[in-house]
Write a protein that binds this DNA or RNA. Sequence first.
DNA 1: ATTGATTTGTTGAATAATCAACGAATTCCA
DNA 2: TGGAATTCGTTGATTATTCAACAAATCAAT
Lengths: 182, 182
Amino acid sequence: MAKVDRRIIKSQEAIKKAVIELMAEKPFDDITIQEIADRANVNRGTIYLHYTDKYDLLDQLIEEHMDNLRKLCREASDLTFEEGNYIWYEYFERHRLFFSTMLSSKGAPHFRNRFLQLVIEEFKPEVDVSGGKNQGLHEEVVLQFFASAVVGIVEWWFKNGMPLPARVIAEQTGRLLDRNLG
Amino acid sequence: MAKVDRRIIKSQEAIKKAVIELMAEKPFDDITIQEIADRANVNRGTIYLHYTDKYDLLDQLIEEHMDNLRKLCREASDLTFEEGNYIWYEYFERHRLFFSTMLSSKGAPHFRNRFLQLVIEEFKPEVDVSGGKNQGLHEEVVLQFFASAVVGIVEWWFKNGMPLPARVIAEQTGRLLDRNLG
DNA sequence: ATTGATTTGTTGAATAATCAACGAATTCCA
DNA sequence: TGGAATTCGTTGATTATTCAACAAATCAAT
């Protein structure tokens, strides 16, 4: 892809960082564009050069993380669930402020659904109901079942202040998934 | 003073932060402009828009801190040495990376002298050899004596990892100065 | 409901930063 | 010492950001 001007990267990074920080402090609807601009140390107009409004900003922020998680899946497609899980959890840890904010009670309500949808998509190629231990089950049931489980664990992990190391949580959910889908 | 464009502030702040960080890692002479630009996340050319070379950058950085310390003195001109000292030490603490780097053995060799000169200037209005306990002493002797003492304490404080809280060190040097110059 | 204050989204002109490229100076090291 | 590689300092063209100002929309409180 064409190299992006350094100023664009810097502005967008600052704006995204600002909105995440602010969402950790107050409900999204209470945040003004001016506040985001102040926190990001950019002119208010600059935000409109990149996003149509704050909802677009949040959407793009979410989609970017979904994209990154998807890419990690692609790179880890030949790993076990346990190993692949660990790569995801490393990513979660690196962006803990984003994910814990998004999954917190006052976070972005639709984020959880968007996240669930992604997990379902990524699990789909791994699920086989034509044979093996899941023979005879509806694919959608299996997908919804285990994707919900994974999202629920991530939610629990963040809401409880990440009580287990990424390594451990990845290993345990990995074992559960390998046992059921592997 | 006229309001400065936000882009200028941001670039200069990033560049100054970068050079301080790098000076904490390696000798000043080993630092290249490209390294500073990379660390500051600005184009190399941007540095030349603000500084003629890295020595000019270092000079401006030093002079800015000297200016700030001078301003703090003006604002605290009616305080005791002890109170005024505390204000300086708060400033030192806030910019600990700069001062500890500058005063470290491999720091900027001329910074110590520049700093000493500032302290002498700021002490000059406080010294009275026409009467009181310092009657008969040469003004320059008194100035050099106590300014050196103050600089020496600051140097000691940083080289030993700031072993005392700012409040304490300010109180103790304040008592010593009040006793001799007050 | 009406007013007053704040926030929004947009505009155009001015300015700063970026980028790629250059020759010159400096450093490296064989 | 010679030659290669790096760094320097500058250039001109392009692009992004800033700034001040604006009307419209939204909000808050009476």
